[in-house]
Structure formats: C-alpha cells, structure tokens
C-alpha cells in the first residue's frame, strides 16, 4: 500500500542550527505512528514542517501525492491534515464553541459545521456544557478534549498529535490514549509525537526513534518496545 504521508531527506534548521537532519518517515492509510525522542530531538520541528509552519532547508514532504513543502499552511490544512498542538494551544480568549468553529474554518457552510460540532458535543458532553465559556478557563483535561475535537471537525485524513499527554493527570492520560485508538478506528491516520513511550507504543502500529535530529531506529511498535536500548532510555529500564 502506498503511503498517505511520505517524508524523505528532510532537513530543517533554525538560523544556522540544524534541528532535523535527513529524516525519512512514512505514514500509511489507517495507521498510528509515533515518533519517540527526548526534548530537543526535533520531534515538534517535523510536525511543524509538515504543517508548513517552518520551511525545510531541503527534502520532500508528500501527502496524497501532493508536495507540501511549497504550500502555505492554510492550503496544507485544506488538503486534509489537522493538528493537536503541544500544550493544547487553544484560543484562550475564544469560547469553546468558537474554538471548534475555527477548527472547521475551511468549510464555509455554517450549518454543516454546526452539525459536526453537534456530533462532537455528543461524544464530549462536557464540552456542550462549557460551550459558551472561554477556552482558557477550562481544566487541562477539558482543554485537551477541545483540542482533539477542534482537530476532528475539519474531517481530516491525518492528524498530527504533539505530546497529547503532556501535563495531564494520569487518569486523563489514559482517556487521551483511548481516544487516539477511537479516532484511528474512524479511519483517520495519526502521526504522534510522545515522551510517554510506554503508552504511545501500546496504541501505535509503528514507531520511530529520533535522536538529535536523526532517526536512529524504526520498526513495528511491539518490536521497538522489546528492544533493550529503547527500554533503557524511554521505559525506565523496566519491562
């Protein structure tokens, strides 16, 4: 099967400092793939390069047979890629409802957008209660629900998730990973960046290990989880 997203030879630098040096990565239709790596390994940079928020030095990013590296971010989004950013990044001064409406900005039909948002409220009743509250006033877990719902309302083919479990209570973390599974069952592919390797490897089909801007390992999630080196670094050395 051909890849939905295909990155090859990606190089990204900030000023003169290389952040990502020659990364290859694929996501196939219907898969969950995870990029593991410590702080500063370049995980978020890869996500931002896919979204068009940073311009790569060289390399190619293809999504459904279209080259993304020369497209502006709004066109990339319209092509079917959505985003759950690190630390949620909601529009804190906008209401929950307006955050969700912004998630589907590319759809001009207001009635269609409201229908999708209604479906989100069915799934996350808590958000319906809070729809007229500004998003900044919600708890961390609720904010993550808004961030995920916001990513879904545009009906994307691929969702990029940047540290979805960061800063959440352990109970909520479990919910978030269950939700990743659920979204994937809806037929949406997911590329996730995580520091919580143990949980991430449970939901992922395939995993990549990133170290200082380079891919050092890649393989089936179960195989990666079994590797001695990975367990030492990411799983605290315990089984």
């Amino acid at each position: 099967m051909s890849a939905l997203l295909s990155i090859s030879g990606l190089h990204v630098s900030y000023k003169a400092v290389p952040a990502v040096s020659g990364v290859d990565l694929d996501v196939r239709e219907g898969e969950v793939r995870v990029i593991l790596g410590s702080n500063g390994a370049g995980k978020t940079t890869i996500i931002k390069a896919i979204l068009g928020l940073v311009k790569p030095l060289k390399g190619s990013i293809r999504f459904r047979d279209q080259e993304l590296t020369r497209l502006p971010p709004h066109r990339i989004h319209q092509g079917g890629i959505s985003w759950v950013p690190e630390g949620r990044q909601l529009w804190g001064t906008l209401t929950v409802l307006d955050n969700l409406k912004m998630g589907a900005f590319s759809e001009p039909d207001e009635a269609a957008v409201m229908e999708r948002i209604e479906a989100m409220f069915e799934r996350f009743p808590r958000l319906r209660e809070r729809r007229f509250q500004v998003a900044g006033s919600l708890s961390g877990g609720e904010q993550q629900m808004v961030a995920i719902a916001r990513a879904l309302v545009s009906r994307p083919k691929l969702i990029l998730m940047d540290e979805p479990s960061l800063g959440l209570a352990p109970m909520v973390v479990r919910d978030v990973f269950a939700l990743v599974k659920e979204i994937n069952r809806m037929g949406i592919s997911i590329l996730m960046v995580e520091q919580n390797a143990r949980q991430a490897l449970k939901v992922a089909d395939w995993a990549y290990l990133l170290e200082v801007g380079r891919m050092v390992e890649s393989g089936r999630a179960a195989e990666i989880a079994a590797k001695e080196s990975v367990r030492e670094i990411f799983l605290g050395g315990r089984a």
Binding site: L51, G52, L53, P72, P73, H74, I76, H77, Q78, S82, W83, P85, Q89, W91, G92, T93, L94, D98, K101, M102, G103, F105, S106, P108, E110, R150, S154
Partner: peptide
C-alpha cells in the same frame, strides 16, 4: 466567520494558518 478568524489570528497567528486561515 472572518471576524472569528480575525480574533484567532490576533491571539495565535500560526495556529490560525494551520487551521486553514489565509
């Protein structure tokens, strides 16, 4: 819709563009 995008850009311009706002 565009007014909402205006407020969205005001708060987080990068995020707005990544969610489809030109």
């Amino acid at each position: 819709r565009y007014g909402r995008a205006t407020r969205a850009i005001a708060e987080r311009p990068d995020l707005a563009s990544a969610f489809g706002v030109d």
